[in-house]
Design a protein around this nucleic acid. Sequence first.
DNA 1: TGTACATCAGTGAACGCGCGTTCACTGATGTAC
DNA 2: TGTACATCAGTGAACGCGCGTTCACTGATGTAC
Lengths: 182, 182
Amino acid sequence: MKVSKETAACHRAALLAAAGRLFRERGFDNVGIAEIAAAAGLTHGAFYTHFESKDALCAEAVEAITRAAAEGLKAAPGLHAYVEAYLSPLHVFARGDGCPFAALCGDAVRQSPAIKASVARGVDRFIDALAEAVEDDGRSPSGRRAEAIQTLATLIGGMMLARTASDEQRHEILEALKASLL
Amino acid sequence: MKVSKETAACHRAALLAAAGRLFRERGFDNVGIAEIAAAAGLTHGAFYTHFESKDALCAEAVEAITRAAAEGLKAAPGLHAYVEAYLSPLHVFARGDGCPFAALCGDAVRQSPAIKASVARGVDRFIDALAEAVEDDGRSPSGRRAEAIQTLATLIGGMMLARTASDEQRHEILEALKASLL
DNA sequence: TGTACATCAGTGAACGCGCGTTCACTGATGTAC
DNA sequence: TGTACATCAGTGAACGCGCGTTCACTGATGTAC
């Protein structure tokens, strides 16, 4: 049955939100259209009135969650606090709500060009945001960008290590990285 | 038909080698038993005379390639040279023969406990090897281990970023990280 | 050393399952009069 | 404002496909005599 335009717009937003969460929790290939639709209160058939394909949804969901990640960084009370929260056990376990890069970079390599490009744009935006947050001790813009890249690599590499690590390892990894970045 | 014990042992080794390469190239879930068996010159049915399940193969393949990675580091002419080679465009594209952590950490989070444990053991061995390779300026063992963790996080995070990045981004990322680690 | 036979690595058809996608259909929405 | 009807978001059955795994069978191996 038909549904009002506002309701349809809500459904689309719900699909994107569910996809953003589920993809981060389990990766692109381990979440089905039916599950995403169900999480948004729909059946799988309705999905195709909102998105052309799963691939199109993936690209759009990546766009959304990477934009949110950059906004989250800009809204943080400072790089120090951001890094502290990033390298917390909470973030290790809250995958569905966490950093899209730590959750999906490994997957993205093997996805379609559209998805890879979406992730690459997100990475670029996030590096920009990090470069602005880095302390300005009179360094050149390119120097700050280089430091931003190093911080990002350490954060996402560290998060992935912490997520596969055993309980004892996890603590050691998070503490070592906090000490080196703060 | 039956086959001599040596031949069977070769087949098993070939299955492990093919799995190690294919898993790194495309991830655990995107490579089928039939493809691995075919790469080893067998049909899929024969696979089950060598391994109990795909999961068992994954765990054993991870064990093999992470051991090889640690040995490769120990055999390197120095940490400097190792990092230089790690952060090279060659490594970005040679996934099947490259670092198992950069290739599989993202996947491993979602795999069975056996696979996760296998990766975690590999990470531990690799950190040990890195801690030995780190320069000894009179630091404590735990200080060297912390530096090893930071180096590993930066390397695998950087490799994953470089692998999803666009052509221009890739160069910038690799150069920034080499500058920070060397 | 030669023969007879049990073993078992390998084959390929078949299974159940979940996936992405399609499509005929339904019925509330919202527009045209 | 009220009515008639075209639109189209949503439903659920169905599709083809590839997957991991099983299993009856084959025939070379390697052992027992």
